[in-house]
Every structure is written in C-alpha cells, then in structure tokens.
Nucleic acid binder design. Structure first.
Length: 260
DNA sequence: ATGGTAGAAGGTCTA
C-alpha cells in the first residue's frame, strides 16, 4: 500500500494540481497539510469520486489538515492532545484497514514553522513538538504499524539543506529544533526516506522566493516516520519532485512510501 | 540590510 504526505498550500487554490497528482501517483492513503480552509470548504466530492474516504480537520485561512484513504478507517482523532487552549488545526489521526494486510495507524501533522526564533512562535513550536512526542509515545505503546507523516518544519541534518550556513538561525534548523525532532525519532521511529536512500539529496520544499526552485535551493522538511512494525513492511520511498516544477505549484513536493 | 512570492482575506498575517 502506498502512503503519501503533501503540503498543498491551499487545497482550493491547488485543486487541479493535487487531483492531477492523485490520478498519477494513486496513493492508497494521503495526509494533506495547509489546506487553508474550514471543513465545509474542503472539496471532498472530488476525492470521493476517486474512491477516497475523507476526514478533514480544517481551519479558516491558516493551517488545516486532511486524511484521505481508499480503505476504510476508524478511530479518527482531530487535534493534538495536551493543550485545550491550542486551536490550530495541525493534527489528524486514524486507523486504516487495508484489504488483506494488518491495519496501519496514520497520523498527519503540520508542525508549527516557529519563525521568528527566538520568540513566542518558536516557543509554541517547541511546546507543540513536546506534545507530539507524548502522543507518539502513547501510540507506539499499541505496537501496531504506525506512520507519522507530514510537514515537520524540521531540517534534520546538514545534508537536508542546500546550504546549512544560510539556515543556522532559522527555526527549521536551530539545534533545539533538531533535538526535539531527534527525541521523537529516538522513541523508536525510522525515517523512511533515509532508510531507502541513505545518502541521496532529496529536498521536499523550495521557497517561492529568490528563485529557490530554479537554483535547487531546497530543504527536506516533509517526512514519513515509521514504527518498528511499519518499518518491517517498508518496500520503497520517494519524493515526487516533478510536482514542484508545474504551473502554480505548491512550494512542497509530495513524499510517499510503499508498505507491504 | 532589504525584499523577493504566494494564499486567504478583504485587516495584514503566515510562511
């Protein structure tokens, strides 16, 4: 089964591009970030017509995540637990039941950007990542195949950015940010892209500004992290870089894995 | 040091 993550930067502004990618890549399950609309404005019919079940955790103007699956799912949770005052729509989770193989739990995340750092937005990012760690710990306790996928707004290593010197003070690359990401990984998750492509330069985001795409000034910030039970089933992983080169693209490319 | 682009809004804010 194929599982993908795609930060679409507005599902309605991007609908044609996104549907084109779905028709081409045919993911069984996908999590989307930055849909930038409330639930009622999500174009569910277009996905239902293609055989997807749809769960949306939307928000006006900012953020917003969705989970689409050709297989039935249950136990949908919207919103990251651990802070009742946090009203950002950045987390969605469900248990997916594929035909013929064991179920897979999928969580879709849109981790706060955190810039400018230091400051309140950076504090929010670090707190949010701590809460995510707690949730992941709980989910790993169930010992099922679990995929944590999304836009983490974290550049894990120097090789994941075109020029680490230019990103030294950025919230996506600060040592504290990478440490928080490592803490989550070190609970026992596997970075799928690095498992399949240990050395490759594989960016997933190119800024709209400063000709970043043309110069290949990219970052690897969209990730699929696997529980041991999911990692055992990993067959392949990749980035659909071509999506970023089309007309009116998202600034992110889709990232996908293939599981047994 | 600044501003460059994009999207939702119809204010600037976020990225």
């Amino acid at each position: 089964m194929k599982i993908a993550t795609y930060n679409v930067n507005s599902i309605n502004a991007r609908l044609e591009r996104v549907l084109e990618w779905f028709d081409d890549a045919k993911p069984d399950v996908a999590v989307l970030q930055e849909i930038k609309c409330v639930d009622e404005k999500f174009p569910a019919v277009e996905f239902e017509d293609r055989g997807y079940n749809v769960a949306v955790h939307g928000q006006k103007t900012y953020n917003g995540v969705a989970l689409l699956s050709k297989y039935p799912f249950e136990e949908v949770n919207k919103g990251l637990p651990g802070d009742d005052t946090d009203d950002h729509a950045r987390y969605i989770e469900a248990m997916v039941f594929p035909k013929g193989v064991k179920p897979v739990r999928i969580a879709g995340v849109y981790v706060p950007n955190g810039n400018p750092a230091p400051g309140p937005k950076y504090d929010y990012k670090l707190k949010w990542m701590k809460r995510l760690k707690r949730r992941v710990k709980e989910l790993l306790g169930f010992e099922d195949a679990f995929v944590l996928a999304g836009d983490f707004n974290v550049i894990p290593q120097a090789e994941d950015v075109y020029d680490p010197r230019e990103w030294g003070a950025d919230a996506l690359y600060l040592p504290q940010t990478r440490a928080a990401f490592r803490e989550i990984l070190n609970l026992g998750l596997t970075d799928a892209i690095r498992q399949i492509h240990p050395k490759a330069v594989l960016y997933t985001f190119w800024d709209y500004q400063r000709g970043a795409w043309e110069k290949d000034h990219g970052l690897r910030i969209d990730h699929l992290l696997l529980s041991p039970q999911a990692a055992d089933r990993l067959k392949d992983a990749g980035v659909d870089r071509a999506a970023r080169g089309k007309e009116k693209p998202s600034d992110h490319a889709p990232v996908w894995i293939e599981l047994k």
